[in-house]
Measured scan of single mutants.
Amino acid sequence: GAYRMKIYDRDELRGQMSELTDDCISVQDRFHLTEIHSLNVLEGSWILYEMPNYRGRQYLLRPGEYRRFLDWGAPNAKVGSLRRVMD
């Protein structure tokens, strides 16, 4: 299947937008971000990790809009890595 997600540095799907279609071992290295404040999962399911290298707390992201970090259940906006959930 296809995988696509848009990430934003501000809440409510605002601010600088970056797009992912594959795994990202370090959000900071690739996008120069340490925080993601909202996101829109367009295709596929993903796991968001608090730390790089797929470590730390993890949150399942199904397709849909997440307008603030509380929407995916996190206590803050800190994001380290993102990985696709393969079928």
Rank of each mutant, 00 (worst) to 15 (best):
E19L: 09
G73A: 05
D71R: 04
P52N: 05
D22T: 06
E35R: 08
M5A: 15
L60I: 12
Q28A: 09
I25S: 13
E35W: 05
L20D: 01
E35P: 11
K6T: 12
N76Y: 04
Y49N: 00
R55G: 09
L33E: 10
V41M: 02
E35F: 11
L39C: 08
T21L: 08
V79Y: 03
G1V: 09
H37W: 06
D71I: 05
L82F: 09
Q28V: 09
R83P: 03
R55F: 14
Q58C: 10
P75T: 09
W46D: 01
Y59L: 07
S26V: 14
R68I: 13
E65F: 06
T34K: 15
N53W: 07
S26N: 06
N40F: 12
G44N: 02
E19C: 07
L13C: 05
M5W: 02
I25M: 14
M17S: 07
M86A: 10
W46I: 02
Q28I: 06
L70T: 14
K6C: 04
W46E: 02
L60W: 04
R57H: 04
G44Y: 02
L82Y: 13
D23F: 01
V79G: 03
Q28H: 10
D29N: 12
N53F: 03
L42W: 10
G56R: 02
R83E: 13
K78M: 09
V27Q: 00
G44T: 00
G1M: 13
V27E: 01
V79P: 02
D9Q: 08
E19P: 04
V27G: 03
T21I: 05
M17G: 08
A77S: 08
W46F: 12
D87G: 10
R68G: 13
L82P: 01
E43V: 04
P75A: 07
A74K: 02
L33T: 09
I47C: 05
H32V: 11
Y54Q: 02
V85N: 04
R10F: 13
L48T: 01
P75L: 10
E65Y: 03
R67T: 06
E43R: 07
L48R: 01
R84V: 14
R30D: 10
S45F: 13
R55H: 11
S38G: 04
N76P: 02
K78L: 08
I7G: 02
Q58Y: 03
E19F: 05
G44F: 01
E35V: 05
M17A: 11
N40P: 01
I36H: 04
R84Q: 12
H32F: 08
M51T: 05
E65L: 12
G15F: 09
A77E: 08
E65W: 15
Y54F: 09
R84G: 04
Y8R: 01
P52H: 03
R55A: 10
N53R: 05
L48K: 00
G64V: 03
Q16R: 08
R68D: 07
C24E: 11
K78P: 03
V41D: 00
K6P: 00
R67C: 07
R14K: 15
L60Q: 08
E50W: 00
C24S: 14
M86N: 15
D87M: 12
F31C: 12
R68F: 03
M51Q: 12
L20S: 13
K6N: 08
V85K: 13
R68M: 12
V79A: 07
I7M: 10
R84T: 04
Y49V: 02
L39H: 01
Q16E: 09
R14F: 13
F31T: 12
K78D: 03
M86D: 15
S18N: 10
N76W: 07
R10C: 08
L61I: 09
F69A: 12
I36F: 08
D11W: 09
A74C: 13
M5Y: 00
I47R: 03
N40V: 11
E12G: 05
T21R: 11
A2Y: 15
N53G: 07
S45P: 14
L61F: 02
L61M: 06
A2P: 05
G1T: 09
S81R: 00
V27A: 13
K78S: 06
F69V: 13
V85Q: 05
V27S: 15
I36E: 00
G73K: 08
L70F: 05
M51W: 05
D71W: 08
Y66H: 14
R57L: 06
M17Y: 10
R57P: 06
R83N: 01
R57C: 05
L48W: 05
D9S: 11
S38I: 03
R62P: 07
Q16V: 08
K78Y: 07
C24R: 01
P52W: 03
Q16H: 06
S38T: 01
G1N: 14
S45R: 08
Q28P: 11
D23R: 00
L33S: 09
A77R: 09
E35C: 06
S45G: 09
S18Q: 11
D29C: 10
P63A: 06
T21Y: 11
E19I: 04
L20F: 12
R62T: 08
A2F: 15
I7D: 08
W46T: 01
R83T: 06
C24H: 06
L60K: 07
L42F: 14
L48D: 00
F69L: 05
V41H: 01
S18G: 09
Q16C: 11
I36Q: 02
W72H: 00
Q16T: 07
R68K: 11
I47P: 00
I47D: 13
